[in-house]
Design a protein around this nucleic acid. Structure first.
Lengths: 338, 338
DNA sequence: AGAGGCCATCGAAGCGCTTCAACACACCGC
DNA sequence: GCGGTGTGTTGAAGCGCTTCGATGGCCTCT
């Protein structure tokens, strides 16, 4: 294990000089810097993370709390996590992966031990039990998702209320008057996960304004549950011509079942999905959809957290990404429309 | 920030005593221990991770390298990652998330800086460029996946060769003589990812032994690419009655397209999938499948790595999990079989 | 030419913990 | 009552780095 002291000796300078070359916190003359850098390379020196953390009380690690629930659509989580890790690296930070399992205890452990300099918390519930602890922690925190009360917090999320509204608007403009919402699994609503409830709220409000009748049914996403859900929808509202799907796992089953029932998309029914682009373009029908910008969310979260760490903190703020609806092949004029 | 010294003062003992209470490395009398523990609780003490790492040269962190490729089926990765994080925690370790992006440099950085005590590497290629570095590192390493040469390495993986064989056996036993393999995306083969090639090898060898004709076609997994792949399969081998699907993204498209073409599953064609249980049970037909035990792989990897760290190293070893085929509703006797 | 300023570098003091050697004490058997 | 054995506790020496204040050389200004 090569140490800074050895590098210093090899380069014929003091330890502090090497340190300053490394950190750039003081100016070092070009020849000295080069000599030091050369020694570093030659000896294969890597600063010891522990010593660094101890001396500087900065670990250069960002903790990322991901849920370990399985009722959330996982690819989105993974995409966010990867984006977080990648973006963090580009800012010189590493990412510590914390699962939801430990719950609030994890927050305490990490903030207490100085393991991480900051936290990014995913899958936030409206009344999340981790929030009080995060408030108390001296570490900067960014939430991916929106709790009920955002006072003093920094959050990043897709504007799900606007997303819901956008979906209804699109369908309404095409003449659809009876729209069914294929929602997330019931457990997601029971937990009061913000994005699910907000989407619903957006859908309902705009639907009210536009005179669209809405029917919301949670759905597990399996083929079987989708089958049941679909039957009940058409039983209750035989005139349904529009679908909004929020649960990505339900997309394939829905399309498949509609086809099997002889309902053509988009001639007989239109489908609008809220899902990552990839899902929308790879389904059996290219889906009109509002993209969930997983990558961007992860990236923004890191940028906000890094800004806080570097002191360019813009304090409390909520970054709500504007939804964008892309029209593809799954939506068209309601049957019987001029 | 409460320090160990403050705890010691509060409890009226020396710092080393507190340290020994914490680590249990020396016996401490019950009364003293209780006094110390009480002080710890009362002051809300958390040991500083950096100081600990520096003094003990152990960070209690395990690095996990995940690929950031998008051509791998992501949910499996996520499942493994979560299992790794959870299992690691239960052994007192945290997990550092490294993306493949940095490549070999990440290995050097982590082993060099003592950031992590050990590494778990996912998505290993047959001739992985990280292998030489891992060999050289003094940190214990466990691979999830099997490179070509495993000398001196510890690996965990599903026995994909046996998996392939098992799939053919099942179909052969049902009387199928012409079987098509819907493989992973071409890029996966080009990269020489072990699991894809081994499965294929297992399939081919056993097919040869059993007199089954095999046709292998890589497939992106999108609906469109599956459509093309399927047409070509039936063009070349109209008599195909069995399918083995390795690419999980291709499962839904395949079932959907077969149905659309009027081919009933399992009456006309049988389908065997290699995928997580959840996928197999949630598809439109309950799939006969060989489960990819993502959780177990993550767990085993951590256990092996921890064993190495604690010195119960059993040295070089390859833990190949035996595949298990579960018969469900997607496979049946070949048409025309007695 | 001397005061003042700036730049590059150095020395030393920690950061909070672990761990080793050493010590104090009680207890045993003879 | 003395050496031996063992248990519980302590002091002190670092672990490898950052950072602050100090130092010395050189340049500029008057």
């Amino acid at each position: 294990m090569v140490t800074l002291a050895e590098v210093a000796r090899h380069a014929g300078v003091s330890a502090s000089t090497v340190s300053y070359v490394l950190s750039g916190k003081r100016s070092i003359s070009a020849p000295t810097r080069e000599r030091v850098e050369h020694s570093i390379k030659e000896l294969g020196y890597h600063p010891n993370a522990g010593a660094r953390a101890l001396a500087s009380s900065r670990s250069n690690i960002i903790a990322l709390m991901v849920p370990l629930r399985t009722d959330m659509y996982v690819p989105v989580m993974m995409e966010i996590a990867i984006a977080v890790a990648t973006t963090a690296r580009s800012h010189g930070y590493d990412v510590l992966l914390l699962t939801g399992e430990e719950g609030p205890a994890a927050v305490r452990r990490v903030t207490g031990s100085g393991l991480a300099d900051a936290m990014i918390v995913m899958d936030v519930e409206l009344e999340d039990e981790r929030l009080p602890l995060l408030h108390a922690a001296r570490q900067p925190t960014v939430l991916i998702g929106l709790p009920a009360d955002t006072v003093g917090l920094t959050c990043v999320d897709l504007d799900f209320t606007a997303t819901g509204a956008l979906c209804v608007e699109h369908l309404a403009a095409l003449g659809h008057r009876e729209v069914a919402i294929v929602g997330e699994a019931p457990a997601v609503y029971e937990r009061h996960t913000g994005f699910a409830e907000r989407t619903l709220e957006g859908l309902r409000r705009r639907a009210g304004e536009l005179g669209v009748r809405l029917l919301h049914r949670p759905c597990q996403g399996s083929y079987e549950s989708m089958d049941g859900t679909l039957s009940r929808i058409f039983d209750e509202r035989p005139g349904t011509t529009g679908f909004v799907v929020q649960n990505e796992a339900a997309i394939d089953p829905l399309l498949s079942l509609l086809r099997r029932q002889g309902r053509a998309v988009p001639e007989d029914v239109s489908v609008v999905a809220v899902c990552p682009e990839q899902v929308a373009t790879q389904a059996s029908v290219r889906l009109t959809s509002v993209a969930v910008p997983a990558q961007e969310m992860g990236q923004r979260a890191v940028e906000l957290v890094v800004a806080k760490l570097e002191g360019n903190a813009s304090g409390e703020q909520v970054a709500l990404l504007a939804p964008e609806l892309t029209v593809r092949a799954s939506s068209g004029p309601a049957p019987g429309t001029a």
